[in-house]
Structures are given as C-alpha cells and as structure tokens.
Design a binder for these strands. Sequence first.
DNA 1: ATCGGCTCGCGCAA
DNA 2: TGCGCGAAGCCGAT
Length: 457
Amino acid sequence: MPGIHTAIHKDRLRHWIAPPIKPGKYVLYWMQQAQRVAYNHALAHAVEISNTLCLPLVVGFVLTSDFPDANLRHYVFMLEGIAQTQSQLGKLGISFVLKVGDMVEEVFKLSRDAAWVVADVGYLRIQRQWRAQVANALKCPYTEVETDVTVPVAAAAAKEASAARTLRPLLMNKLGDYLDPVVLPEYRMRQTIPKTPHLDSIDPIKLADRVVTNKNISPVNYYHGGPAEARQRLKKFISQGLAAYHVLSRDPTKHGQSDLSPYLHFGQISPVEIVREIQATEAPPAAKKAFIEQMVVRRELAVNFVYYNPGYDMYEQAVPHWAQKTLAEHIQDPRPYIYTWDQLEQGNTHDPYWNAAQMEMVKTGKMHNYMRMYWGKKIMEWTRTPQEAHEIILALNNRYELDGRDPNGFTGAAWCFGRHDRPWQERAIFGKVRYMNAEGLKRKFRINEYVQRIQTL
DNA sequence: ATCGGCTCGCGCAA
DNA sequence: TGCGCGAAGCCGAT
C-alpha cells in the first residue's frame, strides 16, 4: 500500500478501497474474527497505519444478538475473551469500543469519521456478506488482513481442493513463508488520545444475558474463553501432551488433543503462533508432524472448502456428486434404526458409544475428534435421508460445540458424506461412502472407558 | 497383529 | 488419453 510501511506479508492484505486517504479523525480496526491482541496481523497493520497517518486507533467490536445458531454458550465463551482483549488493549493505550446491534449498521456508524478501516478476515457466508456490505458503504480506504490461517487461503490454492492430498503439499511448501513473528509496533498515538473512552470492564455473563436472544443452551464449565486460557492450554499441551500426540490424539479414551479448537474458532489464539511454538519444541518429529497435519492441513482444508464452495452447508453442494449418487441409490434400503431429533439430541439411542459422544458434546461443549466422525456417520445411518442427516448433524454441531459454525464443522459434516474422501466397498444405506461401526471403536480402543468417563461428568 | 483390496476422480506424464 | 495413487476405515485372509 503506497505510503504505508508494513511488516505484514502482502498475501495477507486485501485492499478493497484504495487511497487517496480521506481526511478523518482516527483509524478503525473492526475486530470481528480475530478477537485477540497477540499475533493479530490485522491489529498490527492497523497500528502501522495509525502511526503513519498520525491518527489514533480505535478498535471496534460489534455484538449482534442473532448470529445464526449461536446461543448463550457461545456468547459467554466469546465475551470472556473479549473482556480480556479489551483490558489488554487498554494497557496498550488503544481505545476499544463495544457496540450492540446490527453488524453492518454499527460498523458503518463506527467508521463515520475514520480515515481508514482495517478488518480481519472470516470465511463463512455471513462474515463475507458483512464485509462486502461494509466495503460497499465505506468512503475511506478499507483493507482486510488475513490473520486466522497460516497460509492465506488464496495463496495456498487457487481452487477448491478435492482432498487433503492435493492441498497438503501446497500448504507445506508455502508454510515457511508465512510464519514470521507478528510484532505489534509501538503505538505512537497513545498520548494524543484526548481521553480514552472509559468503558466499564465487561461482565461476560451479564452482557450475554442482556444481549442474546437464544438462551436455551447453557454455558459450559469445562472451557472458559479468552486468549489467556488459550495460551495456558497451549503451554500445558506442549509440556504434557505434544510428545505423544501422534500416538494418543486419535484415542477418545485418552486426553491426547490440544483442545484449542474453541479458542481458534473465536480467534482467541493465532494458528501462526501455535505452529511457531510447536516447531520450537524438542518433541518427536512424528508428534509435530501429526499436530501440524490437524492444525494446518485439516484446518486449512476446511477453510479452502468454505471459501471456494459457496454451498458448504447445503447437501447438494457440500456432498460430492459420486456420493450423492450412491446414497440416492440406497435411499430405499431398510434402516434398522430411525431416530427422531429429540432422541438424538438427548443421547437416547441403542448405542452407548454414540450416546456418550453426544453427551460429551452437550456437557463439555467439545466432542473428541475421532468420535465426531463416528457420531456423524451414525446419524447418517439412523435417519431416513442423507439430506435430513446432514441437516441434523449441522444443527446439533452448531448448537452444542463451542467450535460450532466453524469451517471445520461444515467440512466435518460434509466429510461424513464423502467430501475429501474416496469411495469404498458398497454396502447398505452408505452405498460407497465410507462406513464406520462400533466394532472399530472396540477393536481400536478400550471404548468402555470413554463411556464411563462421560458418565462421571 | 498385519496386509491388501475395496472404488473413484484427480493430476501429472505422455 | 492413460494411469498411478490416495485415504481420519472396514473386512477377510494370513
């Protein structure tokens, strides 16, 4: 960008509206996806612009009451993080403004006297619509900064990847180019702010209770939101879990995962920071490789999917053609078990492993990754049509998982129906789509220990 | 316990 | 145009 010296990789920047710079009173960073201070390329770029223009920086965050499928559980987790981020920004002398209302309208109001607006990047439909509407309404320069992936999605691949194997080499070859540390520049305008708007510190529970429409799903005790919690979990994972990650992470009876996905979902920790921390350890190469496979390859395959497939949440577009065909051919197959939404939601099926997985999600806000595959495959087997199963999987996932409504969730649901996978031996109901059964759980794990652990929650 | 086959489409080499 | 190869699993043969 002419005139703005930046340390941010150009592939992370998208300039919607170029200068000439409009006269204005401040630079606005519209914080939406990357709800953190540390390793936030968008915030760092906003500080660079603010320093260059000699204008103060304002960070604006808009709380909408009706984010699709979000409920009290998600809002409380998110606001626990926002409270920390607000306090961290305050210590840096950066103004933070929280607004409640319609996203586009409030961002537009916040940007009225802005000389420049910076935003982070989100990949879901609603996030892209918000940004497009804001960009159309603005009269000042508008720059988006891609900070919640390691490799920017368009730089990784120019089209939808058919499977992990096509994206993996692209990501791994480029990963090193995008792992520079993100150093927040010294904010030069802090003393020139006439008076820092003194916002009361946020009480996540009270604020969520006041704002949120959908209160029927209660917050969880097992995960609390915030960049500080995220960093603690990362440190603990590195010291206790990483060395055996490649051995234990797939076993639902073990505690072998990093449990960082809720924090990544709300942008409370940066994937770049995580990868740097992991690479800096002395853990066995196989452990690091297995973690990078999840953290970078699988996660950014999901970003690639929702970015390039506009129907990522719709059966007809999310599920590959060969799979739709084979599933349709088996639509009349007898189904030994058919469950209703209520039976599934309550974890009330004949299958104790499935019920345990459902209860893990309901109670803790996070189901073990391996069980997510099994859980989805079984819903497909136990409902009348794959379309209905796909809807139920997404609805339950989005309602109960703290990392619901994430690219990973939409991709995981589509994977159950063959996306990013290949055909297998044809069988009833599933056709050529990959099958999973309880025998596999028993063969691989002491799965009863998982059931017992969930029962004690 | 371990191994190959299952089955289709992608992507590279000719 | 042809062909090698994947891939977060299952199943049957050894």
